[in-house]
Nucleic acid binder design. Structure first.
Length: 307
RNA sequence: GGGCAGGUAGCUCAGUCGGUAGAGCAAUGGACUGAAAAUCCAUGUGUCGGGGGUUCAAUUCCCUCCCUGCCCA
């Protein structure tokens, strides 16, 4: 029999943390976070990491365990999560995965072909990008892997770069590896996404940004800046941080920074919605002002029990 | 009360020497298998403040009214 894993997805601010918490309490289990930024230590307020109280009530995994300079990716997430899932299943617990990083959840559900990124090759590609530009990089990909190149645009240099990297390492086009990859796994995923009316979600976002400021986001970022860290490192190329860095360096006002954090968070939420909407495996749990998160959690609990 | 400057997309504004209009931002839709809170793509019909006049034709010119801002009383 397949072992079950519950996934709670949704846009930022949709209440995943709280739903996952009450679900985990009812099920007597633990939570695995699927969030590419909450993995880092020192990013607390700006990533809306669950507070100490919450973390002490229910054990959370894959959260708050990396230094900012460490590199993390979808594959590491997949392997880390699978390990914890095995562990929890061994204790007869149904793992609850909660998070908004679509790619990580996809890696967990479908697996991801095993071609790690290579620092040296990536460095070379960066040099090409800086010296010759995106078009040149794209032309290189087109000459070795026209099919993959056809599915991307020169402007999207990150995707072009990865496709080239994969080709250089394996001699195979990335689209073939994708198509050919299949992972045998004995898990059944029960996936849900929390969906709010758009205007309410945006209000929740505005309110959360205001409360982040009240909680001391500025100090959190100042502490990082004082250590010489900048949004150059990926962990800090993050909504809520990059804008505050600009404010701290004096290039924009605090008011403007707050405005931009709110706007960029909305943009981010929108991208998440696009991602999860497309993946029909995520059952929609509709929310509105009249439905509290506990009853949403209850609904999910009942569905899980029925199956 | 008088003078001046304005009233054009959700916002800030441009423009039409008369042929029903376009930028930025916002917003919306989308792509995305090892950086993904990243990276990238697409989408602009709106009584051109109301009414009247001139004209084949008015958002554009004229009159009038309303509204906003500034200045003078």
């Amino acid at each position: 029999m397949q072992k079950r894993v519950i996934i709670i997805a949704g846009a930022t601010c949709s209440g995943k943390t709280s739903v996952a918490l009450s679900l985990a309490k009812q099920l007597g289990t633990e939570i695995i976070s699927a969030d590419s930024r909450q993995v880092y230590r020192h990013l607390d307020i700006g990533t809306a990491k669950p507070d100490k109280q919450t973390l002490s009530e229910i054990r959370h995994h894959l959260i708050d365990f990396l230094e900012l300079t460490e590199v993390y990716d979808a594959s590491r997430f997949e392997n880390g999560a699978l390990e914890i899932i095995r562990d929890l299943h061994a204790q007869d617990k149904i793992p609850v995965v909660a998070g908004g990083t679509g790619l990580y959840l996809k890696a967990l559900m479908d697996g991801i072909f095993d071609v790690p990124s290579d620092e040296e090759i990536r460095g070379e590609l960066f040099t090409i990008l800086h010296e010759h530009g995106k078009e040149y990089l794209y032309a290189q990909l087109r000459s070795v892997d026209p099919v993959s190149a056809g599915s991307m645009l020169p402007q999207n240099w990150k995707r072009v770069m990865r496709a080239l990297e994969v080709f250089k390492m394996t001699g195979k086009p990335i689209h073939e590896l994708q198509k050919g990859y299949q992972r045998d796994i004995d898990l059944e995923f029960l996936s849900f996404q929390l969906v709010w009316p758009r205007d309410i979600l945006y209000e929740l976002i505005d309110n959360r940004v205001d409360s982040m400021m009240a909680l001391g986001l500025e100090d959190e970022v100042r502490t990082l800046a004082a250590q010489g860290l900048t949004p150059e490192i990926n962990a800090l190329n993050t909504v809520g941080y990059k804008e505050m860095f600009e404010y701290i360096s004096g290039s924009i006002s605090q008011e403007e920074a707050i405005r931009l954090v709110k706007r960029n968070t909305r943009h981010y939420a929108k991208r998440q919605l696009t991602w999860f909407r497309k993946d029909k495996r995520f059952e929609e749990v509709l929310l509105n002002a009249a439905i509290d998160l506990d009853s949403a959690a209850q609904k999910i609990f009942e569905k899980v029990n029925k199956e």
